[in-house]
Amino acid sequence: MTHLEKLVMMANQIAQNLAHEPDPAAAAAEHIRLFWDPRMRAMICAEEVAGLMPTAKAAVALIRPMA
């Protein structure tokens, strides 16, 4: 697994486990902001990251402006 693939897997896991939050994408974005080092956030916010599930993708879109 490459580092990026791992980050995608982690983002998907976070999105799945926060699926019951009132706003799952916002909750996943918040989690990533609170726990991921900036270089990890930058990697996942790069264009054209494949394999993100829809909620994870939405979460990444929320953090992209701040990454």
Binding site: H3, K6, L34, F35, W36, D37, P38, R39, M40
Partner: peptide
Amino acid sequence: PEPGLRIPNMLDAATDGS
């Protein structure tokens, strides 16, 4: 003010070169 790397992230970042 930014969170840092956790152990597995440090190892990944090391193989990435950062």
